[in-house]
Nucleic acid binder design. Structure first.
Lengths: 219, 219
DNA sequence: GCCTGGGGTTGACACTGTCTACCAAGAAGT
DNA sequence: ACTTCTTGGTAGACAGTGTCAACCCCAGGC
């Protein structure tokens, strides 16, 4: 999301760009993100975030009406990072090789989920973050739109051109999402016997996208 | 559940079969399941379950050391129901038609998840139920073993016989699981434009299992 | 008859999210 | 310059939670 031009996170408080002091609100979001990266979603809470951010337990209420709203902001930010990660994953592959770009996007999604498992565990949890938050919804829609675009490129490259791109993207998304979700749950490895979710993704790509080398770049 | 033969749920408390009084422990599990069916996972808690079961808030501690243990028992029961549901879904299809049985199993998984969205939302939540519980682990493994068996049948029917059945089952499981998870999260419909997750599953089946009619029986 | 222990109750403790009153400091208007 | 209003932070309350510990009742074994 808005890669270079400083995303104004919904609060243009007299300092739209280059804010020198991180403005409590941003610090709360960053602290929550840190918490997720270190400790996962398990014990996250408003008071603990406030404590780690060095403010009183009532301070977040001035910026977010509820904990879900704060976490929605964190999830929205994470969705932006996801788009960037997928962008980086497909960037080195020429646009003409649409099928390989699609495979690379799936691996990029996986790598992001594994490297940011805490934030990923939050992004699809309606009980934790307010999924009605406008920022959350637009960020999520942007991520899906990116996937649809990659699918369209793959369709130009001969990947099931007869199917609606949105539905096709839904299947691809669900497959990759299911793989990483089950893996992070700890269910995939003992069941399938292969500890690396990328191996399962590799197989999924070979089944879905048969006529491609599907080279899986090293992480 | 426990349809006919009454599996003794880990507590052979002097009445292994045909217990006339539902024995608080069973009532707690049943009440929790009811809660999930009616109100989802959102506000579930030990005290609320005890309240609805008509016992004091400390009573569950006599049977389950922690809330996670109680919910693990509920999830284990739900995994058993899932196996039964998938069994019912593939039963009317002749065993020779392995690919169609696989497709039917996927639809059966979906229908179970949609009809028992509360319990399904619990089964893969490590923060809610103790996934180290032995009952939980064996029930989950049984569900996956059932899927592997169906995949093996499909392989005998020409469905990618060169691939390891466990890995193949992992891909199929992840795809269906991802579809229903994203749907229950509310993300699939606005993105793909089709409200019915079975439509997405239908497409996934057509992509995975190309040479079959993939008839999707009416729910 | 006594004792023992399973199973239920009640009360406590620490903790949570949210609400409300209070307060400090800067902006704005007169 | 003085007042007023808004913004943002603090501290205390309240209802709720999971878990722990003490107590208590009552059936079964000696």
């Amino acid at each position: 999301m808005t890669p270079t031009v400083a995303p104004p996170t919904t609060t243009p408080t007299t300092t739209p760009t280059t804010t020198p002091t991180p403005s409590t609100r941003d610090r709360l979001v960053a602290t929550a993100r840190d918490y997720l990266d270190h400790d996962g979603t398990d014990g996250i809470g408003l008071r603990e975030i406030a404590r780690r951010a060095g403010v009183s337990h009532g301070a977040p209420q001035r910026h977010f009406p509820t904990l879900s709203a704060l976490l929605a902001a964190v999830a929205a930010e994470a969705f932006g990072d996801l788009v960037l990660a997928v962008d980086r994953a497909i960037a080195p592959i020429p646009e003409a090789a649409g099928r390989e770009r699609l495979a690379a996007a799936a691996f990029g999604y996986q790598r992001f989920a594994l490297a940011n498992s805490g934030a990923f565990g939050l992004m699809f949890r309606a009980d934790l973050c307010d999924i009605g938050d406008p920022d959350y919804m637009t960020s999520g829609a942007a991520a899906f739109a990116q996937l649809v675009a990659v699918v369209r490129e793959a369709q130009s490259d001969g990947f099931h051109p007869e199917v609606r791109a949105e539905e096709l993207a839904g299947v691809m998304w669900a497959t990759t999402h299911g793989i990483v979700s089950l893996h992070l749950h700890g269910a995939l490895a003992p069941m399938t016997g292969c500890a690396d979710p990328a191996t399962v993704q590799q197989l999924a790509n070979e089944l879905f996208i048969p006529s491609t080398s599907n080279h899986r770049e090293t992480p």
